[in-house]
């Protein structure tokens, strides 16, 4: 229950992939950050929200067998480092596929999924996961 505000605060970023861009150097960041690690204090007041496309490619991945409680029903599940087209890399699940279909370099796009549940009576926490792009049909 103590998690409500912590979860709620990030929902724009997790629901819609709202990142930050430093208008001093134009580097895009996700997860969002208030200070640009390149421009430091020159970025103060110049970090703006930016809508990311949710498109990217798999940089690396793993199939998790030893899963935390919230993820046990999905076991085994795939976690990946996804390099977004706008530049930043994030950590997310890849769903709707089997491990043998996953490989580094494959194109993916973001989908909206339930990430975890706070027990049977607590809040539902949603956010991004990724799905492998369908190859164009011949």
């Amino acid at each position: 229950m103590g998690e409500l505000s912590r979860i709620w605060r990030e929902s724009d970023h997790r629901y819609r992939l709202i990142g930050h861009v430093c208008r001093n150097c134009n580097t895009v960041y996700f997860p969002p950050r208030d200070i640009c690690p390149t421009c430091h204090r020159d970025s103060v007041g110049k970090m703006e929200e930016i809508q990311l496309s949710g498109k990217g490619s798999i940089f690396s991945y793993t199939v998790v067998h030893d899963a935390p409680p919230a993820f046990r029903r999905q076991r085994p599940y795939i976690i990946a480092l996804i390099k977004l087209d706008e530049g930043p890399t994030l950590t997310a699940q890849i769903v709707d596929t089997k491990p043998e279909n996953v490989s580094s370099g494959k194109r993916v796009h973001a989908v909206f999924r339930k990430i975890r549940e706070d027990g049977s009576g607590g809040i539902l926490q949603y956010g991004y996961k990724f799905v492998i792009d369908e190859p164009p049909k011949a």
């Binding site: 699940q93 999924r113 339930k114 990430i115 539902l124």
Partner: peptide, 11 residues
């Protein structure tokens, strides 16, 4: 899927 519900489908 276990991570799908009416909210995710609606979105």
């Amino acid at each position: 899927a276990p991570d799908e519900d009416v909210a995710t489908i609606s979105v």
